[in-house]
């Protein structure tokens, strides 16, 4: 919930080309990435996007492959909106919001072939590596999509496969083959704002997340909220996501 007066203030500012925190429309908040923050995880990262804070951990263990992909490792992504991160988060089973975040991050990694899961096969038809990617939201000040996916990619680049622990050979570094970076924009009135803060997100009519790889190709998209976009708006969001994504990619690497 947001007071009417603040809502009006954000909308009026947006109509004048301004934002509450003084950023330009296409300017993301400061991004801080710290890798290797959880030593019991195979890979981990703490991402701060302004005041939004998300921790992502990778755990791996041998397991059974899916029946339809007998020669590939398995990816399991989940997101937890812990009650400590916001007065509106409740404990209990995952909310639709948490599920959407987990699935968008999961698709971003899986469909863009960020990791070649064929290389995570131990014995065909029997044993493969199962990669658990857990997104833990610690402080919620908007744009969990980007914080989570930047966190996920960072944690993957930090991951060492624990083969020795399970007596299947030597440990090896997980190979990250692509670097798709997700950028989220929201629409307030007719203004398009990159990396929305919580207040901006609350006021927004529509949201679009675009994930672009190192070659400038589109790897994933997800539109959300009740509003709509015109095709021209979608195209301009893709273009600005490409430019901003390049900078974020350097931080992750």
């Amino acid at each position: 919930m947001l007071s009417e007066i603040k809502r009006d203030y954000i909308c009026q500012l947006a109509a004048k080309g301004k934002r509450v925190d003084g950023r330009k429309f296409d300017e993301p908040r400061e991004i801080k990435i710290e890798k290797g923050v959880a030593k019991n995880a195979e890979g981990s990262a703490l991402v701060k996007l302004g005041d939004t804070s998300v921790m992502v951990g990778v755990k791996m263990a041998p397991g059974e492959p899916y029946p339809d992909t007998q020669d590939s490792g398995v990816l399991t992504t989940s997101a937890e909106l812990t009650p400590l991160a916001s007065p509106t988060f409740e404990s209990g089973p995952p909310s639709p919001e948490a599920i959407e975040i987990a699935r968008v991050v999961d698709r971003g990694i899986r469909e863009s072939k960020t990791v070649d899961f064929k290389k995570l096969c131990i014995t065909k038809n029997e044993k493969v590596w199962v990669l658990f990617l857990d997104i833990h939201v610690l402080d919620y000040d908007g744009n969990l999509f980007d914080a989570s996916s930047i966190g996920a990619l960072s944690a993957l680049t930090d991951t060492v496969v624990p083969a020795k622990r399970f007596e299947i050979g030597e440990d090896f570094k997980l190979e990250v083959e692509h670097y798709p970076v997700s950028c989220t924009s929201v629409k307030i009135g007719s203004a398009i704002l990159l990396d929305p803060s919580l207040d901006e997100e609350t006021v927004a009519d529509a949201r679009l997340t675009v994930s672009i790889d190192e070659n400038g190709d589109i790897r994933a998209m997800q539109k959300g909220l009740n509003g709509s976009f015109t095709l021209d708006e979608v195209k301009s969001i893709i273009n600005s996501s490409k430019i901003k994504g390049d900078r974020i990619r350097e931080l992750i690497k």
């Binding site: 469909e111 790889d213 998209m221 997800q222």
Partner: peptide, 22 residues
């Protein structure tokens, strides 16, 4: 109006391919 209400994408598309697809 041609307004877009739902848009998702996964996989791999270049900009030209996206424009054509949409």
């Amino acid at each position: 109006t041609g307004e877009i209400l739902l848009l998702q994408m996964d996989g791999h598309l270049t900009m030209e391919e996206f424009n054509k697809a949409v």
